[in-house]
Structures are given as C-alpha cells and as structure tokens.
Amino acid sequence: MQHVLVIGAGTMGTVHASSYAKMENVELAGIVDIRKQIGGPLAAKLNTNYFTSFEEAVTQLPRIDVIDVCLPTYLHKKYVLKAADLGKHVICEKPLARTKEDAKEMISYCKEKGVKLFVGHVLRFFPEYVKAKEIIDKNEIGKPAMARTTRGGIFPTAWNDWYADYKNSGGLVLDMIIHDIDFLRWCFGDVKRVYAKSVLGRSFNRIDYALLTLRFENGMIAHVEGTWAHEGFSTYLEIAGDNGIIEFDSKKEKSIYAQIRQKENGGGVAVPSSPLKENPYYQELAHFMECIENDCEPIVSAEDAFKAVEISLAALESIETGKVVEIKPSLTHA
C-alpha cells in the first residue's frame, strides 16, 4: 500500500488525486495547495487531508511513500528535490523541467537519493496511441515514412496565468506538444534535427501556435502541430508507412453523441464524447504504483522525459534563431 501526497490542486492535481482516491491499494494521504478555496474542497470531496504548504504536509502526515508534483513547470525542480531529500519516490508532471540542466539535475539527484522518478507522459497510456504503436511494431503499415500529429484547443487558463508567461511555461511547445514528441520518440527512436516556427516573438496576445518538423535518426519525417488558437480540445495522429497508413482524428472518432433538448431557448448543445472505464491518467498512475511495489522499470523513464524536454527546447531554439537545430546525444546513463 503506497501513501501518496499530491502537490498542487490544479487541473492535473485534481485528475491525479481523483485517480489515487479510486485505487484500492493506494492511500491518498493528502493534497497540498496554497489556495484554500481550491485545495480544501478537493480534499474534502476525496476524503483526504488538506495542507496549505509542503512543509506542513510532510511534518503532519504520519506516512508518505510517494510525492506527486502537479505544479507549474518552473516549480517542478524545487519540489522534486525536496521530495527526494525526504527519501520519497517522486511522480512529476510533464514537462520534467523548464531547462535541460534542471532536468538533468533532477534525474541525478533522485538517483543519488535512491528514489524513483516518474514523469507523467500520459500519452503512452492513451489506448488510441498505444494501439497505433502496436500496429507499427507489428509492421502492418510497413516502414514508417511520414508522421503528422496535432494537439490543442483554447489557450489554457490556470493559477496566476502561468501558461501565458513563456519564461515559466515554455509555451505550448514545451508544455503540450511534448506529449507528441515523446510518443513519436517512443515509436521511432531518437530525433536528429528540428526546425520549427511559432507565434513566439510575433506578439499575439493569448494565442500560441507552433509547427515543428522533426527528422529522426531512422530517416523518417514528422510534422508536429501545437495550437492554443482553436476552440475545443482535439488531437490528430497520422502515420504513413510504405505499406499502409494509420489515421486518428479525435474530432471524428466519437462513440457517444448526446443532444439534450432544451425546454427554453430553442436548441440544445451537442456533446460528443469517447468514454473509457478507466481514464489514461489512472492507468499511468496505477502503472507507476506497480513499478514502485515491484521495483520494475516504467514504460516511460525519466531519461525519456529528459529527451522529450531536449527536443522541445531544440524546437524553441529553432523558433528563436530561425535555424535548424541538431540534437546531439547529451545524457549518459550515470
């Protein structure tokens, strides 16, 4: 039985805490958030303890095995290091860090302290993406040549509007399409070079949009689109091989389409969805718990998370310099 403390009660903290609360062999020990009006009700709803600070939680709770860091990106390092200092295993939301140096330090620090570090690259637990990888691995589409991914929707609003602060969030390239970057690396191996464009430096308020070109070591080419310029969240995945094509468009692949008639104001709003019994976040966290219980390697390692940060930052460098950025192998397993 693992006792988990969740730090941060924002969107991701809420999803993580709710998942732990449902797990039979996991104890949600508590939730930390500096915002009483947000952390308090969530803790009450999930029948767990609420704390206004990390220090308060770790001194008051009798037992913590795992600390799950669901904070804005620029705060990840501080709290991952604090957790490691206490000898607790760490789960950290993606992206692992805002810089490569921080990411590297977090990985080696956790190793030194003998604690496991897991990073929430949850796309590896989304069934449509898992299935796509299975199909590629079974050689059903032949040798992959071109991949296209899309991810995005409206500009995210969160605590202190931290997403809008590029210095803190890295914008959508580091925060969001890092999911697709990690997925593509999982399927096709390491990336050789990156070229990218985005609205960064073109001064549009609360719109972010980026188009990346990745060339992989194996020769294949990927187009990665990230958008905080659309309405409604959606994702797209296409992989063309020399013997077939995989296509997935979340806007089209809906399994239930509800349209509730409104008594007043005329028409109702259509709500399409694609429900699953266990959401991918639950699957991801259950997998991390299992890795702790059984001392085994996770589907996505901290080194994978580092590489995803490295590629995302290379894209940001390309956006800023207008140049092609080569990725050189830089993380050696200590």
Binding site: A145, M146, K197, L211, T213, I221, A240, G241, G244, I245
Partner: peptide, 23 residues
C-alpha cells in the same frame, strides 16, 4: 516525401506536406 516550412513577407509562417504518401 517532403515537408516545407515557409515564411511570408507579411509575417505569416506556414508548413506544407507535399508527400506522395497515400498507399
């Protein structure tokens, strides 16, 4: 297969996938 990225003189950027990738 080809994937182009372009800058326009009005500050717009664009990509274009011109691949013969349909099987």
């Amino acid at each position: 297969c080809g994937l182009l990225t372009m800058e326009f003189d009005n500050g717009v950027f664009a990509t274009l996938d011109c691949s013969w990738s349909r099987n």
